[in-house]
């Protein structure tokens, strides 16, 4: 059975989806790929924006898309180390 993702795992997955889509994805496909309920996704998305991991942009036609900030890239870069640290000290 697949282990349930924890909070950090979900954040990592969402950010990775954005990065893997050339750092530009619309909210609806992001919700679909993230495998979350729309309510959970909204909560995580709000958290990601408030923490400055992602930002919302609009193109010339006014369509919204999501991109990673430097902080979001930094989180992805550090994720393995963060998990290792948490595991090392049973935090």
């Amino acid at each position: 059975m697949k282990k349930k993702r924890d909070r950090l795992g979900v954040i990592f997955d969402i950010l990775k989806i954005v990065r893997d889509n050339h750092n530009s994805i619309k909210p609806t496909p992001l919700l679909r790929y993230s495998n979350l309920s729309s309510q959970s996704f909204s909560e995580y998305y709000r958290e990601l924006r408030s923490k400055g991991f992602v930002k919302e942009m609009a193109d010339k036609k006014g369509k919204r898309f999501i991109t990673l900030t430097d902080r979001g890239f930094r989180f992805l870069e550090k994720y393995r180390l963060i998990l290792g640290f948490i595991d090392e000290f049973e935090l």
Partner: peptide
């Protein structure tokens, strides 16, 4: 040294540690 890890995650365990 643990400042950035905490800053990125706001993890309670890291906070206490």
């Amino acid at each position: 040294k643990t400042r950035e890890i905490y800053d990125l995650t706001k993890h309670r365990g890291i906070y206490y540690f």
